[in-house]
């Protein structure tokens, strides 16, 4: 009994000290990490805006859309920029995507993700989103890799592709059906 108690207490103390140390470092680094993420998001928003002005933010109560920004041209609304939440092979990811009012995808950029380098991580490259750009309005967005001209581009990372496609199609549908509250 004594051995079990001693072993348990030792392991507990090691865990408690380790998590305490991590907590201290986290309290120092968390604000810097948040600032980095914010800066990265702002830069991505500018790139994804497709040359349009980023207007006012609209509150989102949709669990798959973290934020909604209006895209304007000369003060007139032309589309939306959405921060979409999706799920791939490496867990949850975030995509910033811009759409015209008819649901056509203008630009998209993969942000935070846990995809595998060399496979799902390809979604971070610009050519990857080119497969979706200009679609979602008259032409439907590809729903699976067989809808692509060259399915081999995403071979080995179908789960990521489906996750990206689902998120972008959800965004397109959302923009098409958007109604001001």
């Amino acid at each position: 009994m004594n051995t079990i108690l001693k072993t348990g207490i030792t392991l507990f103390l090691i865990c408690a000290l380790s998590s305490g140390l991590c907590g201290i470092v986290n309290s120092i680094t968390a604000p810097l990490i948040a600032a980095n993420v914010e800066k990265e998001t702002l830069e991505a928003r500018q790139v994804v805006s497709g040359g349009y002005e980023i207007g006012a933010g609209i509150e989102s109560d949709d669990p798959l859309i973290a934020s909604i920004m209006e895209l304007t041209d000369g003060g007139e609304r032309v589309g939306f920029e959405l921060e979409l939440l999706g799920s791939g092979y490496g867990g949850e990811f975030t995509i910033i995507a811009s759409y015209l009012l008819d649901g056509t995808l203008l630009e998209a950029k993969m942000m935070a993700n846990g995809e595998t380098p060399g496979l799902g991580k390809k979604a971070e490259e610009s050519w990857y989103m080119d497969m979706f750009k200009g679609k979602g309005g008259d032409t439907p967005l590809p729903g699976n890799k067989n809808d692509l001209d060259d399915p081999s581009l995403v071979s080995g990372a179908s789960v990521t592709f489906n996750g990206v496609s689902n998120a972008l199609r959800y965004g397109s549908e959302f923009v098409r059906n958007f109604k001001e509250v």
């Binding site: 991590c22 986290n26 810097l32 980095n36």
Partner: peptide, 9 residues
């Protein structure tokens, strides 16, 4: 974990 947080920051 500490290295991850420091590098990320």
């Amino acid at each position: 974990t500490i290295v991850e947080m420091v590098l990320h920051a």
